[in-house]
Structures are given as C-alpha cells and as structure tokens.
Amino acid sequence: MIGDIFTLLLLNPLVNLLVLLSHVLWGSFGLAIIAFTILVRVATFPLTLRQLHATRAMQALQPRVQEINKKYSDPKRRQEEMMKLYREGGANPLSCLGPILLTFPVFIALYSAIRIALPNSPEALEKLSSHIYGWSYLQHALPLEEHFLGVDLRGNGGDSLIGYFFVAAVAATTFIQSKTTVTTSTDERVRQQQQMMNVMMPFMFAFFAMSFPVGVSLYWVVNSAAQIGFNILTYGFPALGLQPVFKARAPAAAPQAALSDGDERTSPTSARELRTANGSGRSKRQNRRRRP
C-alpha cells in the first residue's frame, strides 16, 4: 500500500520528469539529473529560507537554553520552560528538519528512479513501461543514454575510475557544505561533536557513494553545491571575506519572559551578533559577559 502510494505520487512523476528532461536536454540523462536537482532547489527555496530563519532563531535562544538546563533539574519543568522559551522566541526546533524531511523522499525516489529509468536488462526495460506515462513524446525518448562524462550512471561509484571521481566529489562537497553551515549550539561539547561529524560525514558519504549508482552521486554533488552557494549567500564566508547577501530575520524579542521567576537573563541577540558568535565559536563564558 505504502509502496503503491510512493510509486504513484513520487516515483512515477519523477521517472517521467527525468525522461522528459533527458529528452529535452539532448538525450543526456546526466544533464537531466542536474536540471532536476536545480529545479528541486528552486522549488524548495522558500522552505530553505524558512529553515534559515528557524536556525537563526534557535541559535539566538541557545544561551537561554543553557541557563534553563542549569536552572531546572526536573525534566518536566525543564521541558515546559524550553517550550515556553521557544514559543515566545518564535522558534520551532522541528522547523529545521523540514527541508531534510523533504529531501529524503526525493532522494529515495531518485535512487529508485535511476535504477528504473536506466534499465540494465530487457526485463527492466519491460518493467519501465509500467512507470512511463502514455505520452508519445516520453516514449519516443526511450531507452535513455546511460553514459555521462564517460561513466555509466547505473554503475556504482566504486566500479570505475571516473566513478571514484564522483565519490571524491561527494566527499568534497559534503565537507565544504558543513564548513559553510551555521552551528546552532553554543555548548562547547556539542560544538566538538559537530566538528567531529563535519570530518566524519564526508568519509561516510563517500563510503555510501561507492555502493550507490553514480547518478545518485551526481545528484548529491549538485545538491550540495547548490546548498553551499545558498549558505554563502545567506551566512557569508568570513574565511574568504564574503558577506551575506540575504539578511536573516531577527529573532523575536521575547526570551526574557521565558524565565518566569524573574532572573536576569540575556537579551535577544541580534542577527549580526549571531553571525559573530557562530563564526568564532564563542563560549558560554563569553556570552555571559555580555549580559546587562
């Protein structure tokens, strides 16, 4: 049942869109994957922008989150205060996950679509008929050209020399993406964990890319490259002296009320301060100094 819904609503439209793009783009399935990735990024741009705002808001509240954690030992009370803080600060911890949750079905569908649209056997081409819409224009495009930049997009990354190039590109773009992404936590321990993840992730994804079709790696590389560009436009890249182009919305000025017993607490941090805090990895102690 779930499989049928997945096939009907996501997989089949994706297979047909890829076939259509491939036919339009000189019969190149590789170009179709690139065009598809860009289309998805453009379509989800508002969602990505919302995620940015949510990340900013979450980041602004981190010093207060730390204080609540310290202040309340009762988990229930702590949770209540946290929710109050998030509500009044205009932040939603789950909103950061929106684009990721959207990416996964697309990623899984793309993984399946590549395997279906580039059949490796007569039986697989026969089965493709059940996924393709009855439009003559689409059917005229079949079978698709499976080679792109000298590599078989159906083959796994670890199967060929050029495949390894794509594996390396997956690792490189994942690493750069992590370096250009804002870190929300001001907790030193969490920051260290995140730095470790930043190093581990490229290796892990490279490992996955070895056993995934090269077409999926191509999607990953283009998607990451787009995200890197977006990150630089929104966060800037201080290492290269690049300033952000899009200004993030300042978080709501409410966190004071979150600590209901009247303790003095940090005032809402401006977007500019957040950038600084994020860029240099300012510690809790440094944050405390700025309290009124």
């Binding site: 779930i2 499989g3 997945f6 899984i108 490796n120 007569p122 039986e123 697989a124 089965k127």
Partner: peptide, 18 residues
Amino acid sequence: ALLLLPLVSSCVSVLNPT
C-alpha cells in the same frame, strides 16, 4: 536515511537479466 535507503527502495524492485 542512507542506511535505510536500500531497504526502502527495495519496495521498487529492479529486474536483473533472466
């Protein structure tokens, strides 16, 4: 998700030469 990917995508079988 990457670990689950082969499992999820196995819902959509791809046929090998028979």
